[in-house]
Design a protein around this nucleic acid. Structure first.
Length: 553
RNA sequence: GCGCCCGUAGCUCAGUGGAUAGAGCAGGUGCCUUCUAAGCACUUGGUCGCAGGUUCGAUCCCUGCCGGGCGCGCCA
């Protein structure tokens, strides 16, 4: 029996007590059934009695006693204890936990998936770094976390589109183009330009692609370097992210908004809603009406639209494309953006609480030999996604980035992340999967297989370590659901570490395969199912994080 | 000054109002002739930044303070 099934049983018990007249409450929708930390507290525990006590008008322990009475009548429940202030500690009947293994294996890659977000169309924007250079270490965190969030939302049944906003308009593109031009002409890069080593090859690519470029007038040259330089950079960024396992469905060009007239349309829409005004020769959006700190300029006094104006058009475009929810993952250096973004959504007539969600993540520090290293794209002394991957590998990089809460600043230490020790939890988790794969391979060599789900004798299971493992496997769907709701993929990683440890302890004390001249029996088969179920969860969990589940190490 | 994030074991960090606050690393002691020792067992280690409040119960929610990071442009 899974925790979800037990939750229904508890709810049934409440209705039973109500029907019997021992309890006068409404049957709650959300019943919390959790895995107690202390094993002496049974397989599962619920605080339902304490939560119902107030409305029932009787002490929590009395509510608990009434519910315990109901629950004890259930054949799948072996024992119910009322403990502490009113906890119900539930011990499942022999074999009830074992069914979890069968369910997990039978569901396979679908184990853990839910339809909690079925029917939701979500646009998830992340990374969106300026196309003036390769993907940096700072963006790498969002590539790993954003992609994991996308996979989590999909595991909850949502229809997710991954999007990268290409800021291919504005002053920094001009500086980028002039840097390319200078490199092509063999001149020093302008002081306010981009100094990185990557500039030269990009400049050469543009030159090779455009015969006679250097004979064109100055302004035309810059325009070509801008257009083709950005295209080359975006292609590079896209390839890098794909190689990292982070696929984007759309690379959306900011410039296309300017060229299609979307900005004017957005301005007109905001005007219709009555939140646009003029002051000092500029056009403003009255975002303070919706909680922003100050009003924001849409069109500057010189007639040029602001970056914010493009944001308005971009948001409206996303909504026009049919997304129910626009989710944007931003670094803490953009946290000042939240207020105006919410306000623009409200000003456009939408509800920020339902249509927009901005997730702010803290920045990363690059650490070398224990010392922080400063990164600056403009100065060219930055470390790239590709550098990190080269140093530690994709799996270690993605895992290390995804296992930390986004609310936490993290230190990226390539030396630490490349260690093949327990400083690196990714190997601990992967090792568990490889170990199980090995057991299953050996089983196959002995001619042993799982057989049919209906033939497993789950009553063969009951060792404390087996029960621990089965309970952990049973948690997986709830871990995925919670992680998706909270946009917190690190919860999946932490859970996998716990699961791997639980498996290693099971492995240590529960021999799976027959040794020497022993003969395989029903317990062997039952334990093979437990192994296969664990492998299923490790695989599914690692896949959510974009990390490989190896069969050998 | 205002806004957001953080402060939990020596270090790096988990912990969506529940029972005796956890993990890894670091330190110490053991366990491989048979399923992967990248493993396991035992052990040392805490005023959950401080002070109030909310309630049956607070690391978690609220208020104030202290310390650290980021942000507060007619830049992008």
């Amino acid at each position: 029996m899974t925790p979800e099934q037990l939750r229904d049983v508890v709810r049934t018990a409440v209705s039973g007590a109500v029907a019997r007249g021992t309890l006068a409450v409404e049957v709650p929708e959300d019943v919390v059934v959790e895995r107690p930390k202390n094993r002496a507290h049974g397989d599962y525990a619920t605080n339902i009695a304490m939560r119902l006590a107030k409305t029932a008008g009787i002490p929590p322990r009395a509510v608990a006693e009434a519910l315990a009475e109901e629950l004890r009548a259930q054949p799948s429940i072996a024992a119910v204890d009322v403990a502490g202030p009113g906890f119900l500690n539930i011990t499942l009947a022999e074999g009830a936990l074992g069914r979890i293994a069968v369910q997990a294996v039978s569901a396979g890659e679908d184990y853990g998936r839910t339809d909690a977000l079925a029917g939701q169309r979500i646009n998830l924007e992340f990374v969106s770094a300026n196309p003036t250079g390769p993907v940096t270490l700072g963006s790498t965190r969002w590539a790993a976390v954003g992609d994991a969030i996308a996979r989590l939302l999909e595991a909850s049944g949502a229809d997710v589109s991954r999007e990268y906003y290409v800021n291919d308009a504005g002053a920094q593109i001009e500086r980028f183009a002039r840097s390319l031009q200078a490199a092509a002409l063999g001149r020093p890069i302008p002081e306010d330009g981009y100094q990185g080593d990557y500039i030269e090859p990009v400049a050469q690519r543009v030159l090779a692609d455009t015969p006679g470029l250097l004979d064109m007038p100055e302004q035309e040259q810059v325009a070509v370097f801008a257009e083709k330089g950005v295209a080359a950079m975006v292609a590079d960024i896209r390839a890098t992210l794909e190689g990292f396992g982070a696929h984007f469905d759309t690379f959306f060009s900011e410039r296309s908004l300017h060229e299609s007239g979307a900005l004017e349309k957005a301005l007109a829409t905001l005007r219709e809603q009555g939140h646009v005004f003029e002051r000092d020769g500029a056009v403003w959006l009255r975002t303070t009406d919706f909680g922003d700190d100050k009003d924001r300029v849409l069109v500057k006094a010189d007639g040029e639209p602001t970056y914010f104006a493009a944001d308005c058009a971009y948001y409206l475009d996303k909504r026009r494309r049919g997304f129910d929810k626009v989710v944007i993952l931003l670094g803490a250096d953009h946290s000042g953006y939240v207020g105006r973004y919410k306000a623009l959504v409200a000003a456009a007539g939408d509800d920020p609480a339902t249509h927009l969600e901005i997730q702010i993540g803290q920045l990363v520090n690059l650490v070398r030999n224990g010392e922080p290293v400063r990164m600056s794209k403009r100065a060219g002394n930055f470390v790239l996604l590709t550098d990190l991957v080269e140093a530690v590998g994709i799996d270690a990089a993605r895992y290390a980035l995804a296992r930390a809460s986004v609310d936490q600043q993290i230190d990226i230490d390539a030396e630490l992340w490349s260690r093949k020790t327990n400083d690196n939890p990714v190997f601990y988790v992967q090792y568990a999967h490889a170990r199980i794969s090995s057991v299953l391979r050996n089983a196959a060599e002995l001619g042993l297989s799982l057989g049919e789900a209906g033939d497993v004798d789950v009553s063969q299971l009951g060792h404390e370590r087996e029960n621990d493992l089965l309970r952990a496997i049973g948690e997986f769907p709830r871990v995925l659901t919670a992680a998706a709701e909270l946009r917190a993929p690190h919860r999946v990683a932490r859970y996998l570490e716990e699961l791997a440890g639980t498996y290693h302890r099971f492995y240590d004390s529960c021999r799976v395969l027959p040794r020497g001249d022993e003969v395989a029996g029903p317990q062997t088969t039952a334990r093979l199912w437990v192994c296969a179920a664990t492998a299923t969860v490790l695989h599914n969990g690692l896949t959510v994080l974009g990390v490989h589940a190896p069969e050998r190490m």
